[in-house]
Simulated assay, not measured.
Amino acid sequence: MVHMDCVRKAHSCTTDPRKAAQEFHAMVSQPGMSLVIFFCSSEYHLDALAEEMKHLFGEVLVVGCTTAGEIGPAGFRDHSLAGASFAGSHFRVVAGQVDHLQQFEVDAGQAFAQSLLHKLMAEGAPADVDNSFALLLIDGLSLREEPVTRAFQTALGRLALLGGSAGDGMKFDKTQVYWDGQFCSDCAVLVLVVSRMPFRIFKTQHIVATEDRLVVTEADASCRVVKEINGLPASQEYARMLGIDASDLNPARFAAWPVVLTIGGTTYVRSIQKANADGSLTFFCAIENGLVLRVAKGVDLLQNLEQAFAEIRAEIGPPQLVLGYDCILRKLEITQSAARERIGEVLQENNTVGFHTYGEQFRGVHVNQTLVGIAFGANAVETSHV
């Protein structure tokens, strides 16, 4: 039996915050909502947006964050509001917030995640790896994604965790998460979901490693700054590997030539945010002394995306909704690509709603330059219950 109305997606492109919230509410509102999730531009007057969202949705659980660009039925957008609602008939949800991330302690984080899991179980929703997952939204400038993600995933065991780091366009000034009717920084929201709908968690990237090795010889992991590579100033050595001058480094170069780390045979992208005046490089994730990285290059992003969705469709059929968290560096590459329109069409054809991030979280690892997400099929699993 097909249940197409158990999730509803929306995308408002008006720049007035209250009108955007009203348009969004009109499109996603449905009886018995258990969760509403949204992604919005930081260009909105966020206090006004928060106030209107609280007024419209009342006691419904609503979570969201600011972005580096929004993805929805209207395609790739800036200064818009996109998201979806989930019906309580098919989704059982619990959620909570962790603030003061600068003082985050792993033990406390694990206890928080375990308490949410116990709450879900206590409400009569049997949670297991086949019917449950976790969503994370986190301040993208907190620099705390690694310990938070690891702690939560450890506590959740085999339940898959995925999420995105909030953005603020290309300003890198203030990123915020929405919880309990207001936007806040230095915080994270964890959402646990038991679903009657079939779903598939996925991660895709179009990055392949070259043979060029970079050994991190001096780094400040807490600040995500690499000072030296191969014993030389980091930006100078990285630029030399690319065959360019360090003065020519820019976001487009970083998007085209990230670096990768191999862990247990799996390749994880470690993307560069910016080159600094002192010759160091700031990354989107923590880099430690002694790590051996490889320069990487992009292959066909469109082909990789089409293949990822083909695999999803083969497993669960055409998705009625995909929540997608797509790296800001992929957005920069897509913007300059001749295939931009077709890439947007592929996302729209697969009912993708999401945002461009300052980082992605996938099964306990903080990653870069990937698209991570969860795709929901159209047919309810009648043998499970919520």
Rank of each mutant, 00 (worst) to 15 (best):
G163M: 05
S34T: 05
P31Q: 03
Q153I: 00
L161T: 01
Q22A: 13
D47H: 08
A122W: 11
A127H: 06
V98W: 03
S132V: 06
R77A: 14
S85P: 11
S29R: 12
V129H: 06
D130H: 11
L136C: 02
L61S: 14
M53W: 00
E123C: 14
H79M: 07
Q103L: 13
G124M: 10
S29Y: 04
L162W: 05
A151R: 01
L46N: 06
L117A: 10
Q22G: 03
L101F: 01
S41A: 09
V62M: 02
F133R: 04
G109E: 09
E43I: 09
L101A: 04
S29G: 00
T154V: 02
E52R: 13
L81C: 04
E70Y: 10
F24N: 07
A95Y: 08
M53T: 09
V36F: 10
A108F: 04
S132I: 02
S85A: 15
L136G: 00
G109V: 09
F104D: 11
S132Q: 10
F152M: 03
D139S: 07
E123K: 04
G157P: 01
F76S: 08
K119T: 11
A108H: 11
A84Y: 15
E123Y: 05
A48S: 15
L141W: 09
V106C: 14
F86W: 12
G88T: 06
H79Y: 15
V28Y: 02
P73I: 03
S89M: 03
S42R: 04
A134E: 05
Q114T: 13
E123S: 13
E51N: 09
D47R: 08
A84I: 01
G157D: 06
H90F: 14
P73S: 13
M27V: 06
I37P: 00
F91S: 00
S42D: 10
L101N: 04
V62D: 06
E43K: 01
G83H: 14
S42H: 02
E145H: 02
F112M: 12
R144G: 06
H118F: 09
M33L: 14
G75R: 05
G163A: 01
A113V: 02
M121S: 14
D47M: 14
F57C: 02
V28M: 03
R144W: 04
L56C: 12
S89R: 13
A108N: 13
V148H: 00
A155V: 00
V62S: 06
A95Q: 14
E145Q: 12
G109C: 09
A127R: 08
G83K: 12
G58T: 03
Q102T: 15
L141A: 08
L156G: 01
G72C: 07
F39D: 01
L116D: 05
S34A: 08
V148S: 00
I71D: 05
Q22Y: 01
A68L: 08
K54V: 11
A95W: 07
R92G: 15
G69Q: 10
S80T: 11
F38C: 04
L161E: 01
